[in-house]
Nucleic acid binder design. Structure first.
Lengths: 157, 157
DNA sequence: GTGATAATGGTCAAGAAAGGTCAAATTTAT
DNA sequence: ATAAATTTGACCTTTCTTGACCATTATCAC
């Protein structure tokens, strides 16, 4: 098929690797050497063929031992699920309903354990009928408390 | 695959030891010899991979019988700073004051960029005078929106 | 005690080994 | 023929490695 230019060939090569492993790590120099192109062409391929809006995430490291990492990123289906959940949300939510939602967010990997705790803190701070300024103070205070608590028990993720 | 350079390997070695014992004590010279690098590279690894803001505490002793001690986990001083900030908090906070506080949380490494956005979302949802149930719904809705937005532009950290 | 010496660890700057950027030159498509 | 896409190369930034020189601590000889 019409893969006449090098950029297309390199793109195809990387995307084939991505089908197998969801995370591809290569060295720019190695890749350039393999296809006998100049290193900066690799950047061109990444810029034009692996754009974030097409669902790819590229991270790099410079210096000795540097690399390129390519992940096939945000799953369109996942985003659609999230949007669906948003639209299903009614105008009022009880605390148990919130907890169910938070569990879903955690289980589907949208947020970390730590972020769940942060959000719980925020939600709990909402209960009263104080003014906005007072609520902010209360919220920040609870959040700070939560943060130091997080640090003490080093659960992680 | 990821550990192409010595610094990464030494980092991994030390962090593995840390998982078991929470306090690692080694001699710089010994470690350097073990991995066949110059001693000062050990300092480099400690400086770049075991920063205090990442939750590590390194203490050393020079001279005969010298050592390096590496501790991970809750930095007592950091927690004290946080508690101090908490106590300074007044009962009312304007939005600009909140933003200053959030900047401090970010700069001192307590929270990530993503978490700042999450908290901002929560705080902004506080403005109204609706009931708690309504506020929860609004808060969750804003949070979900923020999450999908976060994913689309994969800033990171 | 005091001073020399040996045994550690610390600092800093230069060089090496990646990857990044940008624009000119070339090729391809309309 | 022009516009868009690709290819190349000169120059830049970040990260790692090394080595020369500095600082601190313990021990031993006196």
């Amino acid at each position: 098929m019409a893969s006449k230019n090098m950029s297309d060939i390199i793109e195809a090569y990387l995307k084939q690797l991505l089908k197998r492993s969801a995370l591809v790590e290569v060295q720019r120099i190695e890749l350039a050497r393999k296809f006998d192109v100049v290193p900066s062409q690799i950047n061109y391929v990444l810029r034009t063929r692996f754009k974030p809006e097409q669902g790819y995430l590229v991270t790099t490291k410079r210096g000795d031992g540097g690399y390129l990492k390519i992940q096939s990123g945000p799953d369109q289906q996942k985003i659609q699920d999230l949007v669906d959940k948003m639209n299903q949300l009614s105008d009022e939510l009880s605390w148990p309903e919130c907890q169910i939602l938070l569990r879903w967010l955690r289980q589907t990997g949208w947020v970390s354990k730590r972020e769940v705790r942060l959000l719980e803190t925020c939600l709990e701070a909402l209960g009263s009928d104080r003014t906005a300024k007072q609520q902010r103070a209360h919220l920040m205070r609870q959040t700070l408390k939560q943060l130091s608590f997080d640090l003490e028990r080093e659960d992680e993720e």
